[in-house]
Nucleic acid binder design. Structure first.
Lengths: 148, 148
DNA sequence: ATAAATGCAAACCGTTTGCAAGCTC
DNA sequence: GAGCTTGCAAACGGTTTGCATTTAT
């Protein structure tokens, strides 16, 4: 019942034996549609809506595969389950509001300059910088001031 | 068999009904002895060495309590279980080596200036900044160069 | 005496895994 | 046919919880 497809000529990773299946195509599509972070269950639920036979273990197995292939990254926030996001090109900075929970991506000023200083000072080779800000967003700040 | 003590006058939190017990005193002591991050099991094992009747659930329950009281904070690294650390006064920055796993605390240059810029630009009230660097530490960088 | 704290074992829940069946090439 | 992929159900492992007992006030 799954759509029959012609999969050759389109391997996920050159030189490996991984195949592009309908499940994988769907998962990749859902991941690319996801604006920010997502978790396994979210992807699973969305996948079920479109392709009602996929199983949760397939989602997990493929997320692991995608992680290994560098397509997604695992991130660890305050909750008790894994979160993923599309692999960022390099550094990554966001702000999370403690009141409404919104996550806003941003760019950290003076990042390159600070990185250089740290590399030099400590002798590190820095491959990735994660900056996570916490506080009140503009709207919630206003609400707070208004006593709401 | 646990040491009998006079616990009054030393409440964890004034005005609550929480009691200071031998278990709690021991746990707090172990936490304050811990240099950096720790997890529940680590604390449990250390506690067992000194006070051989404490149970893992007591450790968990107290870590939750300490979290609520603001004594420790939960942090989420790449592993699958919770990590804790003593509550930091404010911001927190560290570097983790992808090769040897060492975590090195550091201070991020131009932090205040960058924070001010972000606050202004986005209208955020920033209460906490977490910066997590990943890469190779000095020693591992050397090893890498040497082809080891 | 009363309410909080504890140990134990069982429950929980997100994630992983073994296995047999189904696909892709 | 060989080997990768999948669904299912069972296993796993860290964390939480119910309950009867102990302890602090």
């Amino acid at each position: 019942m799954a759509i029959k497809r012609h999969y050759n000529g389109n391997r996920i990773l050159n030189g490996t034996q991984q195949r592009i299946t309908a499940n994988r195509e769907l998962l990749l599509e859902l991941i690319h549609e996801s604006p920010g972070h997502f978790d396994a269950d979210e992807i699973y639920r969305k996948a079920r809506e479109k392709h009602n036979t996929i199983s949760l273990s397939t989602v997990y197995r493929n997320l692991q595969l995608f992680k290994k292939l560098g397509i997604v990254e695992e991130r660890h926030f305050s909750e008790d389950h894994h979160h993923y996001e599309k692999k960022q090109t390099g550094d990554h900075q966001h702000f999370q509001c403690t009141r409404c929970g919104t996550i806003i991506e941003l760019s950290w000023p003076l990042l390159e300059k600070s990185k250089d200083t740290v590399s030099e000072r400590y002798g590190f080779q820095i491959t990735r910088v994660e900056i996570e800000l916490t506080g009140l967003c503009f709207e919630c700040g206003k609400m707070r001031e208004a006593g709401l």
